[in-house]
Design a protein around this nucleic acid. Structure first.
Lengths: 224, 224
DNA sequence: CCATGTGAAGCCTTTCACAGCT
DNA sequence: AGCTGTGAAAGGCTTCACATGG
């Protein structure tokens, strides 16, 4: 189903992958609007990115455009989807069924043909054994066992900070976990073979507020 | 209350600010554990960062350490807190009281002396007029009016993609909004004077899965 | 001797500028 | 003429390595 080796060069960096996802989303929108062609300039304007950046990103993957014309929306969408698609459909477990965990379960962005949240974990007996949005919740004590049984390769962590590391240890000990998406505001330690992506929601707000502080400071100095 | 101009150099970059928040969290933990001193090597190990990076980051702010000794936990924590603190306590509005919005409302990471989510907005009449975790929900149609009345300077956006841009337009038209934390998976357009930080939850998962795909591909090529 | 603070080097990412195709 | 694809330049961030001070 997926293209075997779609990569022209051996390294596509993280920032590029992030933008590729944005391009795919935009192209999908344009496709439903029956737009046939799009230029790097158009895409850049719609996404707030420089056209040269768009072209560079796409050039890592191959030559998709026609000079003097632009990119065919349908073709580029299909190619990008292939490139971003994993080899396998990942089975994902979500650990920690608090407010944030539940919100992610239903989040539109987490509906994709590329992966599915299959299993939930919590320590609350009121939740264990019940289904949420169609997924069964297991007890966190059975994390390792269930990872093996259900063939989970990726975990999403939304537990309280204090609980994170020991759960990670249990999960990693199975040797099955290849990636962790960590929403917990703590640094977690894993073997080198496990990829971790930290998503620290409050840090982004702090960054924003710091920028505003900096802006204010500049304004104050200009007034002097 | 806050230090007037704590910055040694004029530019502290985004990645540095992100790590500073991590240092503050770590120092806060160490302080409760009655740890008195910490070295850049210690901090690096606990956070998965190179010691030289820790020292560089801190050096932008001043000289906090003692050579041959390390950093005083209490002092460094106090200094970092001052530096990260805004000049004013921001009044924040959260727009979109779906699952994610509600989750953020109660998220431990969004409890801070530096800012507070004061007001909520939604279009669901079942929510408008009610309070959630102590905050009153207004109708999204009254967004601009309420921004002015409540002196909101920052918005957190957790609405459906289709609703985002028109709400942003209404909000920005008041001239009061200085920053937006955008959880909506769409690019939004704002005047230059408004800072936007995009937090795209699903993009992070896609990045993770792409890394795993790349890892697998390398393994396959090695086997050959 | 130990750990900081920092200029310089190295690496990574973005942007430019233009050759080349339609 | 218009827009892509890309080597080269510019810019930004991280890491090194060592002088400096306790």
């Amino acid at each position: 189903m997926t293209v075997p080796i779609p990569l022209k060069k051996n390294e596509i960096t993280d920032p590029t992958v992030g933008r590729l996802v944005g391009y795919r989303r935009l192209l999908s929108d344009l496709a439903t609007q029956k737009v046939l062609l799009v230029s790097s300039k158009d895409m850049g304007e719609l996404l707030g990115i420089k056209p040269s950046q768009v072209r560079k990103d796409l050039s890592y993957l191959g030559e998709f455009g026609k000079r003097g014309v632009g990119y065919n929306v349908q073709c580029l969408l299909a190619d990008l989807s292939d490139i971003l698609a994993p080899f396998q459909r990942w089975h994902i477990g979500l650990v920690g069924l608090g407010r944030l965990g539940e919100a992610l379960l239903d989040h539109s962005a987490f509906v994709s043909p590329n992966y599915k949240i299959e299993v939930l974990f919590d320590i609350d007996q009121a939740k264990v054994g019940h289904t949420f949005s169609g997924r069964l919740c297991y007890h966190a004590d059975d994390l390792a066992e269930t990872i093996v049984k259900m063939d989970l390769g990726v975990l999403i962590l939304t537990v309280p900070p204090a609980a994170a590391q020991s759960l990670v240890n249990a999960a990693v000990s199975t040797g099955r976990i290849q990636g962790i998406l960590n929403f917990v505001p703590t640094a977690i330690v894993v073997p080198e073979s496990v990829e971790v992506k930290d998503v620290d929601i409050s840090v982004e707000l702090e960054k924003l507020l710091f920028k505003l502080k900096f802006n204010e400071q500049q304004k104050m100095q200009q007034k002097k």
